[in-house]
């Protein structure tokens, strides 16, 4: 298949794969959410996943850090294959940061505590060191002045940037973004995308589920189009804008662009 060829080329171009999915299937009851997913993501690669709702985009990235358990196939993250062993799962999760559509900040903790919680609990970092790290991350997403506020006191855009800082504080090798701007008011989308673009330019490996084609064009190495739980087409952003091959891709793009 031509798409598969595209895939391998892109992977080769960016070096050794950090995430590898082989023949991954996922069922919710009798509904098949993922079908024969093969995918490799290279180090420092930015992959944007697009597709109609219910196409399995979110399920795909949620399988990578085991928020969903895949039913068949192999998922290998940085040399560790995901299994049922909880220690194995936690090891993988430490290397993967995730940003959710609904932010999922901890409402009972201040912004600073939201960010330092995992470094202190998981990495056993002393408070002083964790605070310094958190300040650094907050400066990266341009919210250092919000450290002592609670998430409920921030705007949606600020909350999402806190969520990015929280994920970054674990110093992950890969960042997953599950529709990070879909719950935001239009005027706040840019500030979040700016932070993400900066992150991508800094060399972070990223898998981003989004419909922001401007973002894809700016930083994506590859765009993956999914429909009905399958990967339908893979290519560069330019390929999708100028020469999409599959009818389903064309239809989808005509709807969102």
């Amino acid at each position: 298949m031509t798409e598969r060829a595209d895939f391998t080329d892109a992977t080769r171009a960016t070096g050794e794969a950090i995430i590898e999915l082989q023949d991954v299937d996922k069922f919710f009851g009798s509904f098949q959410a993922l079908r024969d997913i093969d995918m490799k993501v290279g180090r420092q690669e930015v992959v944007v996943v697009i597709g109609p709702s219910g196409s399995g985009k979110s399920t795909l990235i949620r399988c990578i850090n085991r928020l969903e358990k895949h039913d068949r196939g192999r998922i290998v993250v940085d040399g560790v294959e995901l299994s049922d062993d909880i220690r194995n799962i936690q090891e993988v999760r430490r290397e993967i940061g995730m940003v959710f559509q609904q932010f999922n900040l901890f409402p009972h903790l201040t912004v600073l505590d939201n960010i330092t919680l995992a470094p202190r609990q998981v990495r056993k970092m002393p408070k002083r060191e964790a605070d310094a790290l958190a300040m650094e991350m907050m400066e990266r997403v341009r919210i250092p002045e919000q450290a002592n506020k609670y998430p409920g006191q921030l705007s949606g855009g600020q909350q999402q940037r806190v969520a990015i800082a929280r994920a970054l504080a674990m110093q992950p090798k890969v960042m997953l973004f599950d529709e990070p701007t879909s719950a935001l008011d239009p005027e706040m989308i840019k500030e979040v995308l700016d932070s993400m673009v900066e992150l991508a330019r800094g060399g972070m490996t990223m898998i981003v589920v989004t419909h922001e084609m401007g973002f894809a064009r700016a930083v994506a190495n590859r765009v993956v189009f999914m429909a009905d739980g399958e990967i339908v087409e893979v290519g560069s952003p330019e390929h999708f804008f100028t020469d999409p091959r599959e009818d389903r891709t064309k239809l989808f793009l005509s709807q969102i662009l």
């Binding site: 850090n65 085991r66 928020l67 909880i86 936690q90 999760r93 430490r94 993967i96 940061g97 995730m98 959710f100 609904q102 999922n104 900040l105 901890f106 919680l117 995992a118 609990q121 998981v122 929280r166 994920a167 674990m170």
Partner: peptide
């Protein structure tokens, strides 16, 4: 989502329960 956020940053299940 709170549990998922805890899991995603690598907190152990009991830590997620206790602190989040």
């Amino acid at each position: 989502g709170q549990v998922e956020a805890g899991q995603a940053v690598g907190l152990a299940p009991w830590t997620t329960m206790r602190l989040i």
